[in-house]
Simulated assay, not measured.
Amino acid sequence: MKTKITLALVIAIAMTSCSKLWYWNDDDKKDEIKLTESNYVFEGDLYKYALEIRIDSLEDRAAYLKEIIGNNQGTPDIEKDFEETTANLANTAEIAESIVVFEDLADRLGRRNPIGPRPPRPGVIPINLEYIIVYNLEDVNLQINDENGAELAQSEGILYEIVGTNNMLMYKKVNITNAISEGAVIKIKRLNKLNQADSYSIQALK
């Protein structure tokens, strides 16, 4: 019995370590990719992480300006800066709240959610990076540069629909041009379905 239980655990682990996804290729034929815990990033996770960093910075700025104003040292420019900072903070927090992260996919896609293994935490570059997966975006571009600005990786081609997700879940290939080094920076440009563009950078974690 113990042997059977151990074998069952091994099988379960093997089943969750890789997920096969179907998509339509350039020749309008159904093709297949395989996702593992170490070969893709989920853009929603990266964007939410970047927005949270923005929020922390804006909160610090707002608190600093509020203290100056509270000490009767405020000027019209400082008060204007405070108003703009708090408005930006509220807007950024609202955007962050609306972002779909990996953990939300089951609720959003239900049984249509084909992704099994979760990607590394935001900021960690997968050792075998091949794909960037997006949810409900018009387009996305990923670039990774070293600390001196030299290109290490770049997304290429167009977004492909992952079959069965009604165009909500898509992927793009990432081409590694040089070995990923310490101090690398992940740069993302995204375009949502309302044609609203945003870009952000994340310092890669060790």
Results as ranks from 00 to 15, higher is better:
Thr92Ser: 13
Asn72Cys: 09
Gly110Ser: 04
Asn175Met: 13
Ile127Tyr: 06
Val140Arg: 02
Glu32Asn: 07
Asp26Leu: 11
Ala184Gln: 05
Asn91Pro: 00
Leu205Lys: 15
Ala87Pro: 00
Ile132Thr: 05
Thr75Ser: 15
Thr16Asp: 06
Leu159Val: 11
Ile158Cys: 06
Ala153Met: 06
Asp81Gly: 04
Trp22Thr: 05
Arg54Ala: 09
Ser57Val: 05
Tyr131Leu: 03
Glu83Phe: 01
Asn71Glu: 12
Ile99Ser: 08
Leu35Lys: 07
Ala12Met: 05
Phe82Met: 10
Ala153Pro: 07
Ile144Val: 12
Phe82Tyr: 15
Val101Leu: 00
Glu151Gly: 08
Glu37Asp: 04
Val100Glu: 02
Asn175Trp: 09
Gly123Ser: 05
Tyr160Ala: 12
Ala93Phe: 00
Ile188Pro: 09
Ser19Phe: 00
Val124Met: 04
Gln143His: 04
Ile125Leu: 07
Ala50Asn: 04
Gly74Cys: 08
Glu161Val: 08
Leu7Trp: 03
Asn88Trp: 03
Arg190Ser: 15
Ala90His: 07
Pro126His: 06
Thr86Ile: 14
Pro126Glu: 07
Ser98Gln: 11
Asn148Ser: 12
Ile180Trp: 11
Gln73Gly: 13
Pro76Ile: 00
Glu138His: 11
Asn91Ile: 12
Glu151Asn: 11
Gln154Gly: 03
Ser181Arg: 15
Ile5Gly: 00
Asn39Ala: 03
Arg112Glu: 09
Asn192Met: 12
Thr92Gln: 06
Lys66Asn: 13
Leu152Glu: 14
Ala50His: 01
Lys34Gly: 02
Asp28Gly: 01
Asp60Met: 09
Glu67Gly: 07
Ser155Lys: 02
Ser17Tyr: 08
Lys206Pro: 15
Arg111Met: 06
Ala197Leu: 14
Val163Trp: 13
Glu147Arg: 14
Ile176Lys: 15
Asn72Trp: 10
Tyr23Ile: 03
Asn167Pro: 06
Asn167Lys: 14
Ile13Tyr: 07
Glu182Trp: 10
